[in-house]
Design a protein around this nucleic acid. Sequence first.
DNA 1: GCGACAG
DNA 2: ATCTTGTCGC
Length: 218
Amino acid sequence: MAVDVEVLKAQQRELAKRVRLEDGFKRVRYVAGGDLTFLNIRKTPTRGLGAFVVLDVLRGDVVEEVVEEDEVKFPYIPTFLAYRELPLLVKAFKKLRSRPDVVLIDGQGIAHPRGLGIASHFGVYFNLPTVGVAKSRLIGEYEDPPPYGISPLRHRGKRIGWVLRKGKGKSLLFISPGHLVSLKSSLDIVRGILARGLTLPTRLAHNLLQEERRKRLR
DNA sequence: GCGACAG
DNA sequence: ATCTTGTCGC
């Protein structure tokens, strides 16, 4: 039988009660970024690769990289992304020996119908400060931000995140707090990295995965 | 019922 | 997410 989404919704609502939007970090020096890729996206049990890259924002270099591989059986269902990607993200994160101050996850934080995007889910699971960094919108309304500008992401009248435009004619970035990070800090953390001319660790993890994927594809 | 819908 | 090189624009 298929997936019982009602049970998962109840679980998400329960976990969402644990999400805290007060800053729970002392500094933002070691920032980790996590992402996943799949060897064959058309099949649904498929092989997945998960990676984390830890960036030292102060020195501007990469401190640690890890990659893990596993079978991914859960399908992609909008608003239930974590059930597909969290297991491998958890496995990869446990392989890290350094302890990042904040973790960026590819996907939404609280900008989710039940307030529990994958970044929040991951944050509650490890009780660590997390921020969701997505390339497209799941929920919320916003005004198109000007080049190099930002605009708030709102849902039901309240702010749930930010939309950032890196440059002229460039694509958008959807930022939202995951867990133990305030709305303001979620934006400051991301802008702090970009302002130093650094690549977001989520992007570094993505790049690392593309290389690993090509290797194992032959 | 219809359209939207992270990766 | 993936399939895919060069190419147009700043």
